[in-house]
Design a protein around this nucleic acid. Structure first.
Lengths: 399, 399
DNA sequence: ATCGATTTGTTGCTGCGGACAACATACGGT
DNA sequence: ACCGTATGTTGTCCGCAGCAACAAATCGAT
């Protein structure tokens, strides 16, 4: 038939595959048929194709529920087929993750070296080294890396796989397709902003097709907007710029040219300054030492630090409440530095949200902490690759 | 085939129909085939079905372009088939519109009577009267009203066709399905917020699948968010609440319980107060007299009024800039009272947007004035009905 | 004016793939 | 052991898109 526009077979393959993926504890062919409305024979045919294609396997396990009738053969995603590689080129570290079809983390490597002061070539070599190691480890583990995704702290042009501007890396109009070694790029590399990929690391929420705001605190403050389980990137891919929402029109100046931006109140450096911690304290060890210092002092009960975190939480919560009202969202995930600082920042944030959310009489906003730490963007990037396979399995089946 | 999940025929019918709708100046069967990727014979079959179904007609007109080859027979939407009815139950007026398949306005009636102080029954009777008149006029014009949509100034639950809360109408948990007369409701009535439907009245932008923010100034300030040509309603349908974004945390109190909300600076009453106009000035005639008074004084060059409008524009522009940055939008449409006040408010808004939009180096935000005035919500509501027919013509064809 | 070149719209045929029904299979309950 | 129930497979049917061939309608060139 080869309909150039709507291909029912491909759509149904994806549909069946996603039902296998979404039902954590094994689903039968008949179960898929019942949930999708497809005929049992059709579901069977689709599953057969997915099994021979190496994406799905039968876990002989029959239903535990004591029901009359023949038990079905449970199906699950294979964990030895295609895998996704995610690379995170952050300012002060580089990370790589490999994730299998089920979404499980199979390989991780974090290199805690600051990129500032290094040439583009050096940074790229570092990425290439990491990626090669990941690919080898994946192969040794029986996985086939079928695509990779790179998270970048900056603005990207996904259509051209080009980094438009990543100030802290010194990148500008960098075509990743051209500069990455062929064995890594393999023609299927996608790019996105760190906050966006980090938002995609929350697989439990994505599975539920939830809508939420993933707030990623770094030097700046960014956010990934997920609507109905789909990342919203905006017209140019710059969505989620909450760091420069105005908190106070008469506030301190911001490098962006405006005054009183959120970053100047809830960004990493702002919190450090408010807590009275010099910018270079405890930079001797670990990833993101300055945040670790903040958490340490907060745990020790330092009043200035606690006050700074509370204030930052209030301001952040106030701004987030506006975002929730604008977008009619009820869920916020705290990522980046806010994850480590959540014990002290989440309460004021929650308080602001619950008092300022306009839909409060009917629905109450909830705050949750990111499941992953610094590896969140790399995880999300890797997951975005397997997400592509799950939503469009045809290329893998006919490879 | 009857696939319960993906119906290619229905999808292709819609696809062909939308191509006819989107090409303003007539498209041929072959043209549709070329643009959709469908085979010419398939396109022909689809069009035949749409013609016999009464949605499309041949406008014998052959292509003017002097090209070799047989000229195609141009196709266009019929303007004597199904029509959509839109009803706007506003605070100080009620409006009804009938729109044909092509999106043209075929009937309009605005009743400038304030609803405050009237019972729900009285308001509903008024609606019923208007709707009956519209339906008769449509029938006399050869149109068949195939559905109606009601715009309400408040919060609605679309799934249950229920008005959750419309404070100014005194409505609360009102099931429109039950209270509307059967000949109006006809089982196909949809509901939505006024700002949302008003946003859908911008058909030129929708056709382009544009993304924009429709700002609707009334007593309060609301917005309709359109992303890629689709209205974004949010998880509960409350999206677009920009009126209570915080402008100044230490600002004046707001009925919502917060301080310094945008409404307190850019809402109708706030502007009137800032301009030194008493709340009951000029209420003797016309729709929305207070705004008319503002515009009149501004035209006359009254300094206090001009200053008030400029300030309101700055604050609104500042807030909108934040929204554009958050959502990566570059287009704003000014509706409601801002439409009439645009000559004085648009310049400061544009200035704020262009200086504060973070993507300014790559894209510049644009501001446009709503094409429709007070009838915008009713127009959008009516258009939403025919939009449903265009995206899902099957029910009409097999009716 | 006539003939090719080109594009449009139609017709008959082919084949993909989902629905349907019938059947074998595998359990639980009586 | 028998029946009721649910699963998975097989063979058949049919809707519908693709394909190719053809008639129709126009332009350009001789």
């Amino acid at each position: 038939m080869q309909t150039g526009t709507v291909n029912p077979r491909a759509a149904h393959l994806s549909l069946a595959l996603r039902h296998v993926a979404d039902s954590a504890d094994g689903i039968s062919r008949a179960g898929i048929a019942a949930r999708t409305g497809l005929n049992r024979s059709t579901a069977s045919s689709l599953i057969d194709e997915l099994i021979t294609g190496g994406l799905v396997r039968e876990t002989g396990f029959h239903k535990g529920a004591a029901r009359p009738g023949r038990p079905g053969t449970a199906l699950a995603l294979r964990n030895d087929g295609p895998a996704g590689m995610g690379i995170d080129v952050n300012v002060d570290y580089t990370a790589v993750c490999v994730v299998d079809l089920t979404g499980a983390l199979r390989y991780k490597h974090v290199l805690a070296e600051d990129q500032r002061g290094h040439t583009t070539r050096e940074i790229l070599d570092r990425i290439a080294h990491l990626a090669r190691g990941a690919r080898q480890a994946a192969a040794a583990d029986g996985l086939t890396v079928c695509g990779s995704a790179v998270a970048v702290p900056g603005i990207v042009d996904r259509a051209h796989a080009t980094v438009t501007l990543a100030p802290n890396l010194g990148w500008r109009q960098l075509d990743v397709t051209e500069v990455l070694p062929a064995d890594i790029h393999d023609g299927r590399t996608t790019l996105d902003n760190e906050a966006n990929y980090a938002a995609l690391s929350e697989s439990a929420l994505l599975r539920r097709r939830a809508s939420y705001l993933f707030v990623s605190g770094q030097i700046g403050v960014g956010a990934g907007i997920v609507l109905d389980g789909t990342l919203y990137r905006g017209a140019h891919g710059w969505s989620g710029e909450i760091g420069h929402l105005t908190v106070d029109r008469d506030g301190p100046e911001c490098p962006c040219g405006r005054r009183g931006c959120l970053e100047r109140y809830a960004g990493q450096e702002a919190i450090l300054r408010a807590a009275g911690i010099p910018a270079d304290a405890g930079t001797s060890f670990g990833v993101r030492p300055t945040v670790a210092v903040l958490a340490e002092r907060a745990r020790a009960g330092c009043p200035a630090t606690l006050a700074a975190l509370t204030t930052a939480g209030q301001v952040l919560g106030d701004t987030l409440a506006g975002c929730l009202n604008l977008l009619d969202l009820t869920h916020v995930v705290l990522g980046g530095i806010y994850r480590e600082l959540a014990p002290w920042m989440a309460p004021p944030i929650e308080h602001e949200l619950s008092t300022q959310f306009l839909g409060a009489p009917w629905a109450s906003p909830t705050v949750q902490v990111s499941t992953y730490g610094p590896e969140a963007p790399a995880m999300g990037a890797a997951r975005s690759v397997i997400h592509n396979v799950l939503t469009n399995p045809l290329p893998w089946l006919t490879r």
